[in-house]
């Protein structure tokens, strides 16, 4: 598998580290009432068959965090963006 890093170009999988679901959002609240949201955020993940947005770190290259859209069934990668986009 190759990932087309927006900065470095196409590189082999061994240059990257998988860093999980890119869609989870850290809850704003740290109150007891937000417990369920925190359990969701820390532990619970969907396991979709199909398109998945995920984070990859280009540790052996430019050190960017990437948001990769990958089909979990075919491994086809349809989009790669810098996770820091717009910041």
């Amino acid at each position: 598998m190759r990932i087309n890093c927006p900065y470095c170009g196409a590189r082999g999988l061994e240059e990257f580290t998988y860093r999980g679901d890119a869609t989870v959002k850290r809850p704003e609240s740290i109150e007891e009432s937000a417990r369920d949201a925190w359990v969701d955020y820390v532990y619970l993940r969907d396991n979709p068959a199909g398109l998945h947005k995920e984070l990859w770190h280009h540790g052996a290259g430019c050190h960017s965090w990437l948001e990769v859209t990958r089909n979990t069934v075919t491994h086809e990668i349809t989009a790669v963006e810098l996770a820091a986009k717009g910041r």
């Binding site: 470095c8 061994e14 240059e15 052996a60 290259g61 430019c62």
Partner: peptide, 10 residues
């Protein structure tokens, strides 16, 4: 230029 690995060395 390229930042990569050469025989596993960064």
């Amino acid at each position: 230029a390229a930042t990569s690995t050469l025989s596993h060395m960064g």
